[in-house]
Design a protein around this nucleic acid. Structure first.
Lengths: 211, 211, 211, 211
DNA sequence: TATGAATGAGATTTCATTCAT
DNA sequence: CATGAATGAAATCTCATTCAT
């Protein structure tokens, strides 16, 4: 029942393994030195393989970076969505908890693998037009997800009915970006938690003194 | 009274003019095709000058992009600071107005020159480590400025005394980023204004329904 | 018994071969057209290889010329020293024979490969300060070697006890230079032999008429 | 009677002056940094003139170096020939004195202006084929001059009748070269004098112990 | 006449990609 | 299949020379 769908041979499995290692090594290089400063030979050397071998696994340099980004985006997507269906929330407190959980999850990813924010925020967009689009698409996705939460909250009445859903969602995505950015300079978990908390207080309590 | 301040010769003036044109053409190219995809010859061709001429005005490619970024950052800095001293504000309403004004000013820059957000958010950080630092420094500057507003507001009592100033400022910077980002896909002023308003409502009213 | 000493693969051997061919082609070019007038592409073209290939074997243009000079200097050093230990000589006649042998050996090198004197005397020193130093060092070496012969001869009593060893050695090196120079215009062996003989007569008999 | 031949105007004189200064500045640059490493702009800057001005005085870079070499060669020629007619010598002692005087004169030139040996021995020949020929021509000239002394000495009987005039002259030129070379590393007058003396002892006494 | 801004030929060097072994 | 030698397109940068001012 396990390997029924694709009866992979041992060789095939090895191949997939190396494929994955190449993606990871490329991720390392791109995040460390930048996409343009990374030569295919650098990636191969890091793995101890010949650089010709690279081309048996990926079309070209542009191909690998696409895979790197896909992987990275998938990981963040999972953090944003996993176990976190908008309709699982029914009160403001639930939502606040949910937000905290998502925030924490993101923070963990950024913290555990600093290549993620670096690549996503610094490297990807500068590669070419198409990649910049992918980055924007990803932000839009995050915004859409947030928007669905907001809409759900409005429907259930625990969020302001007059909320400008899309733009508020954009603003919230911006704060997530801020969190990712700050993880580049202050990667300690403590700091990330405080920032995350500040974001939530902003969202729920606003900044004004209680009149 | 005419040329008293700087008695520049006509030749000198022409030189400064071309220098500026080169910076501008470089800005065009970098924003359009990206830093790495832009050859010095592209910049020169765009101006109808020989590419050797470029090197009479700038050391090398890295030099020109530094100037482009400096210009760009200066422009945004002006929008963030001009006429906008934190201590000119003394009530929450003042602050909200102030925030609106700054937001509008930024929106105008992003809208009037779409190269600005594209360069700042997409191209700059991917150039090299040093430039990535400059970008982070710039975000830090914006955050520090916001923080000074917040501190001022706390002191005067119209902002929450228990505000986590620095992290809240970070979050607000993130929303400014969101605004810049959105201008890339939806550059119409109308949209920008709405996003700006949503940010302000988030800040002042929170998202929760009035209990 | 075959490849016991250095178990080089066929590929490795081919590589060394090409490396040597590149040095030789570079030597050709530098001697023919001069270092500065020679482009890397010229060297590559002469070998029928792509000019990118050059950079797989040598760091840069400066690197190759260093190797060319090292080769050349080694060749001349061998001629100056091989089988020619100062202490193998014990009479004036021996010394004269020795001198003749060294002179002949040098002449053969200059004659067999006219690139040698051309490169050493005309091209090398003009390349840069460091190379000029190498050339001077080489002359100093030749002078030191000659000096050791002279010292030996004084000790054994067949050379004048009041000889200014170092300066006399310098003068003799100068005459070797003259020989190298003359080989550029008059490369025939006959001429070289006569010049060599004239040098020896000068050294042993002086120029004055017998009183 | 003074300026009758060419009635030069003040302007003309100034022009000639600048022309000379350019040659001298070029000499400085070429000797210091080498011909290829010297840009026309370097020469102009050293004089505080615009580099366009250079081209009002000299055809091109090749032209100026030709003039530099001509000047240099003329200076050495003067030292070799001035007041030193072969037929003014009639005894071996006279000749030895004469030789000393020429040697001293050359040494003074090399010592007073170290650019001379550096340019002549290190830079000139590497410039191009034509210049290499000029250098060889110059050495030939020195050799021919020496040869005429030798011939004169043979005719008057104070030099060996069986002297191989041309090749002996070549050898002597070689020793002059040695002197020039040594002035590059040991420019002190004392050393030059000793070397010069060693050359003369070699020529007149040989190196052998008196039997 | 002096100047220096403009020019582009030309040289060096890198590196993604191919392909024979 | 893996390898890495070979390749050349393409980019950067320099500087001798011209020429308008």
């Amino acid at each position: 029942m396990t390997s029924s769908a694709t009866p992979v041979s041992r060789a095939e499995r090895k191949k997939q393994e190396l494929r994955r290692e190449i993606i990871d090594a490329a991720f390392d290089c791109f995040a460390e030195r930048g996409y343009h400063a990374t030569a295919i030979a650098d990636i191969a050397t890091r793995l101890g393989i010949g650089h010709g071998t690279f081309y048996r696994y990926f079309e070209n340099k542009r191909d690998i970076v696409d895979h790197v980004i896909t992987d990275l985006v998938d990981r963040v997507k999972v953090a944003l969505t996993a176990e976190n269906a908008p309709d699982a929330v029914s009160t403001l407190d639930d939502y606040r908890t949910q937000t905290a959980r998502i925030g924490e999850s993101l923070a963990r990813i950024f913290h555990e693998d600093p290549r993620v924010p670096r690549m996503l925020l610094f490297e990807a967009a500068g590669i070419d037009k198409a990649m910049a689009e992918r980055v924007l698409d990803f932000f839009d996705l995050a915004t859409a997800l947030t928007a669905s939460y907001l809409t759900h909250g409005i429907e259930l009445g625990y969020l302001r009915a007059d909320l400008d859903v899309d733009n508020t969602a954009s603003a919230i995505t911006g704060m997530i970006l801020a969190s990712a950015l700050s993880s580049l300079r202050k990667p300690e978990g403590e700091h990330q938690r405080k920032l995350s908390e500040a974001v939530r207080r902003l969202m729920y309590d606003g900044i004004a003194a209680q009149s």
